[in-house]
């Protein structure tokens, strides 16, 4: 039986949500609305800012780079994450605890610190190259920084924990006996995995992919640090344009296009999986 809340009670509970709603309305929704507004009114009303999306080769290139880096990051994160998440379902409680600890520690580390660590590691004169040269494995230092390889390495480092947690929360709900049952019915281990387990983990794969993808789209710190000006993704470009030219119409158009891209991916995701579960709401 539903215990519906009384009229005046309902108002009281709405009242509890009021401060948060007011804060978000004024300091979150309003600025976003302003971004949308400026993108079609500055410097003059019209869609000419958006025309740049197709006419300006620089913006086109930056969007292409952004999407390419994000797709590669997502693929690598989800494939590697799948291995870890799958292993997590097959080990003892203690063993899993150790794995979770690694993931949570990584997750909670400041992205700035992670970016810094990769700069230290991957520079030409950095720790990794020095070590490899010291061991005589390579003659010339590897170029790992200021290119897409470096950016992808750093972004995978951020995307992996996200992917693992999303995949694991899906796999945890799958009964391990399904694969046993498939084996019992004559399937090889590989067939049991491909025909039974993999399809069951599809929702996890989708939500992991999309989470990693949308977080990657707006990434600023890692691409800026590890791309070193050579690999420019959309967020860095917005920042640079904002700092140097202060062309509001331009900056807000780019921001809007980024926001729309994120919402678009999210909308696709909402059709496939329950968003509330993905964001833990």
């Amino acid at each position: 039986m539903s215990a519906a809340v009384l009229g005046p009670e309902r108002r009281a509970y709405l009242g509890l949500t009021a401060p948060a709603l007011a804060l978000l309305a004024i300091f979150f929704v309003l600025p976003l609305a302003q971004v949308l507004w400026l993108s079609v009114t500055d410097p003059r009303p019209g869609l000419q800012n958006y025309a740049e999306l197709v006419s300006n080769p620089l913006i086109l290139r930056i969007w292409t780079t952004t999407v390419r880096v994000c797709v590669v990051t997502t693929l690598v994160s989800v494939v590697l994450g799948y291995v870890v998440a799958y292993a997590m379902t097959r080990v003892s409680e203690r063993h899993r605890g150790a794995m979770v600890l690694c993931i949570v520690v990584t997750f909670s580390f400041s992205i700035l610190v992670r970016g810094f660590a990769f700069v230290v590691l991957l520079r030409s004169e950095g720790v990794l190259n020095s070590a490899l040269q010291g061991l005589g494995l390579i003659g010339e230092p590897l170029r790992l920084l200021r290119n897409e390889t470096g950016v992808v390495i750093g972004m995978v480092h951020y995307g992996l924990p996200v992917a693992i947690l999303a995949l694991f929360s899906n796999m945890r709900g799958i009964n391990a006996r399904y694969q046993d049952a498939a084996r019992g019915l004559g399937a090889s281990p590989f067939q049991a995995f491909r025909l039974v387990y993999l399809p069951l983990t599809k929702p996890g794969i989708i939500s992991a992919s999309i989470l990693v993808f949308i977080y990657s789209l707006g990434f600023f710190i890692i691409p800026t640090l590890l791309g070193g000006g050579r690999v420019v993704m959309i967020a860095e470009y917005i920042r640079v344009g904002f700092e140097e030219t202060l062309r509001w119409g331009h900056a807000t158009m780019l921001s809007t296009s980024l926001l729309v891209a994120v919402l678009l991916v999210l909308a696709i995701m909402a059709r496939v999986v329950d968003l509330k579960k993905v964001f833990g709401g």
Binding site: L24, F27, F28, L30, P31, L32, Q34, V35, L38, I214, L217, G218, F220, A235, I238, R239, F242, W248, A251, T252, S255, T256, L258, L259, V262, L266, F279
Partner: peptide
């Protein structure tokens, strides 16, 4: 929503306000 909307977009919007 603030977790989903890229921070850079929020920051651009906040600047003027």
């Amino acid at each position: 929503a603030p977790l989903i909307v890229p921070t850079i977009v929020q920051a651009v919007g906040m600047y003027r306000l």
